[in-house]
Each structure stands twice: as C-alpha cells, then as structure tokens.
Design a protein around this nucleic acid. Sequence first.
DNA 1: CTAGTGCACTGGTCTGACCAGTAGGCTGCA
DNA 2: TGCAGCCTACTGGTCAGACCAGTGCACTAG
Lengths: 250, 250
Amino acid sequence: MGGPRFEPVRTVRAYERIVEQIEQAVESGKLRPGERLPSERELMGQFSVSRSTVREALRVLQARGLLRSRPGDPNGAEVLPFSPATLHKSMTTLARVDELSLGELVQFRMVLDGSANLLAARLHTPEELAEMDAAVEAMRAAVQVGYDTFSAADVAFHDAVARASRNKLIQVCNDVVRSIVLNLIADKIADSDDREALMLESIRHHEEVLEAVRAGDGPRAARLARRKMYDYYVGYVPEEEREALRGLLE
Amino acid sequence: MGGPRFEPVRTVRAYERIVEQIEQAVESGKLRPGERLPSERELMGQFSVSRSTVREALRVLQARGLLRSRPGDPNGAEVLPFSPATLHKSMTTLARVDELSLGELVQFRMVLDGSANLLAARLHTPEELAEMDAAVEAMRAAVQVGYDTFSAADVAFHDAVARASRNKLIQVCNDVVRSIVLNLIADKIADSDDREALMLESIRHHEEVLEAVRAGDGPRAARLARRKMYDYYVGYVPEEEREALRGLLE
DNA sequence: CTAGTGCACTGGTCTGACCAGTAGGCTGCA
DNA sequence: TGCAGCCTACTGGTCAGACCAGTGCACTAG
C-alpha cells in the first residue's frame, strides 16, 4: 500500500517492436493497401536489426494477412487490403480442435442467416433482389448438372442476402461459418443418394424465403430462413444437440 | 482441350511445410495443449532445415496463437489451448482499418446478444441464473463505486447469458465484438456527465431481461435485450446508421 | 526499333556465432 | 543429513555473412 506502483516489465522482443510499428502504420493508414515496404535489407538498416529479425517480423505480419511477399520481386513486401482469411483461419482452428460441434456451427448459421434475411427484407435494393432471383434460377438449372454447381448457386444466394443486410460482419462471419459447415459435412452429402430430392426441396425453401424478403416481411423471412437451415442440416446433427437448434425456431 | 490437365504448381516454402506439419499435429490431437515441442536446435535436425527456417515457422504458429515460447526455458515451445485471441486480433484489425462502422458492430451485438438471451431463456441452469442475479447485484453496488466497476459487472452479466446459451461461437464473438465496441466509445462514455442516470437505467433494463430469461420467455428476453442495446448505444451511432439498427427491433 | 541478354536486386535458406536467461545438478557449508 | 548457493548445460533471441533461384529492367546487338 502506498509507495509507487510499479508496472510489471515484460521484455519485448525486437521483432515484436517491428511488428507493432508496421502494423500501426497500416492501421493508421500511413501504409495503404497496394503500397510496398522497403526491401528486407533496407528495413534492417531502418530498424537497426539483423535481417533474421526483420524476417521474423515480416513472417508474423504475413501470418496476420497484412503483407504478402514474393521472391525476386524488386519491390519489397506488398501491403494487402484486409481480407477475412485470418478470421477464417482462426475460426477454422477453433472448429478443428473440436471445441466447436456441428450443432453449434449450424445454430450460429441459423442466427446469422436469420438476421441477414431480417435486415435484407428491409434494406434490399432492386439489384440485390435480382441477384437473389438469379441465384435461385441458377439453382434450378443446376439440379441436372450436379451438386457442386447447385451448391455454388446456393452459396451465391446466401451471399446476396448477406450483402443486402449491409453488415460486413454478418457477411464475413456467415461466409466463414458456412464454409466450415460445408466442409464438415461434404462427405456425408456426397454419399447421400436422394440428393435430387434434397435439391428440389431446398429450391422450394429458397423461393419461399425470397418471397418474404421481396415482400419486405423481415420477421417472416428470418423465421423461414432459420427453419430451412434447420431442416437442411438437422439430419447431420447428433440427436442430443437438436433440442438446442429448435430453440431458434418458433 | 483434351490432353492432360496440369495443376498450377506453387512453390511452397520450407517454413510453410513445417507450419503445416506442426499445425496438423495440433489439430489432430497428436500434440495436446500443455505439451512441449523439441528445442529449435533439435527441430532443425528433425526437419532437416536451418534454425532460421525453424524459427520462422515457429513465429507463424506463435502468431496464430498455437504456441508460446519463452527464452531460457529448458523445454521447447509450449502448445497452447485454443484461445479466441487471434480471432479477437483479426476482428479488431477489421474494425481498425475502418472497414467496420460502429453501427455495424452494435448491430452485430444486438443480433448476438438477442440470440444468446433467446437460448439462455430455454437452457439456463439455476447456477447460471444465480450468476446473472449476482451480476445485476454487483451492478447495483457499483453505481456508487465507479463506472469501471459497473462496466465489469455489466460484462459479467452478458458473459453469463452467453455461457447459458451453450454456444461457444456466440460466446466468443460476443466477447470479441463487445470489447471492440467498448474500446471505440470508451472516451465518449468517460466524458458523459450523466453517467449515474445511465447506470440506473441500464440496471433497470438488465432486471427486465433477467426476468424474461428466468420466466423462460426467450422471444421476450431477446426483444428486450436488443432494445436495451439499441437504447444504450444509439446515441453514439451516426444518424444515418440508426435506421439499420431499428431493423432489428419490432 | 526490337529481341535478347545480362546485371543488380529481391526473398528464401543456410552456417555459425554470441548473448541473456533458466533449471537442475553439484558442491560445500552448517 | 540438509540446504543454500554456485555452475553448467541448455534454452530462445539476435547478429553477421554467405549462397541460391528467381525477377525486372536497362542495355546491347541485331
């Protein structure tokens, strides 16, 4: 009590200081996407460290998706625009380590897709509506082509809805979680022998949702979207997790 | 057309192969949290590369939050349990680069917190309910102490609700987005001169939500939670973004 | 004027060295 | 015998200097 309050000192590694500086420059806009960093050999001069230290810092920034470097490039590393890749990566890791069950992932999709539809019903532009129409049309056309094509059209539909929600966070998370879910059950769907029935059913559902969005009936669109997602995935979710999913239906 | 279809070859760097191998070992469970990697000098033998290459690989894995290393530690790097830290980091970056507006963040919180309450109303245990009670009690006690203490109790409440939702993804995302939002508006709240009124109002709102959760009325809890979040933050959101937030109220 | 060749530079990798820490064994004292 | 304290053999962090395979550009030869 009393006396000066000392902060715990943590030894900061040289490469971390470099990471901080460059990261800060990117986040503050002093370094814009597309711009180039000096070469490693020049950076070692600017930071007064050895090349290995510079390289370790660059590796970290690269792992965070802020930079990209290419051997032989006469310019230095390139500053990248933000991409959800690292978001995707860490969520995938979370799912892989089996901290996340399929049930939780599907539930999260129900939440996100429901909200996206709710918002899209209010905020959609005619162009976005046209995109959704086109996607459903593509789904119809894809039934005879194959499941992969169908799935791509399906994804396009959900993407259009997410974009129409005007919320980038919803878009990104939706995208990330969707691809993880699809990955998890890809083999099961491939084995299914009534895929055509599945596709036809899915199309009907999408049409219903789209009608509600078009009518501007957000709550109805959200409800339908959640129900459709539930119906589509419930078969792959273990029995004991299904009750939780039903908590999102009314 | 015709002829063999060749795959584009991408030159894969040595350190990336190391990252893949170690990452795979972690994700497959061959390397469990708490376990140690061999020392860098030994790894360079196992992978037949130089130490710099090993170190670059370790730096990447460290940046992804899979490892931690400490100088002087006679054991090698430690395998870490998954933590949302990197998820947090990438979301923060997304927000920093100003790709995300405060409105979008608040909207996302409304979605997540609403869903968390909806699920919590169904799934809560008596212990979780007690935690929520305790958190509200702590909020009441904190009014006279200071805003920081109050805010901590507030966070505890939302955490308890998120945990009761039984969905780790909701928990993690909620946590991440909340801390970003609080960071963004921390200075504005600090300047506010009617913080006491704000706190009292907030407590009343929390009590209402808690009652709905206790009663098992999910939809009502969700509606109240979204409304409360809206009321609390709408003042900090630019006028033109508010309409989108109202899309989540009914 | 253009096609082709070199050169100067890039990032990726390697070698070998030093430093400041840490832990655990060892020594010597009580 | 028990323990305090030193010593050593490690660790990761950093440095210096080197080589290689690529790349783009300027220059040159036709």
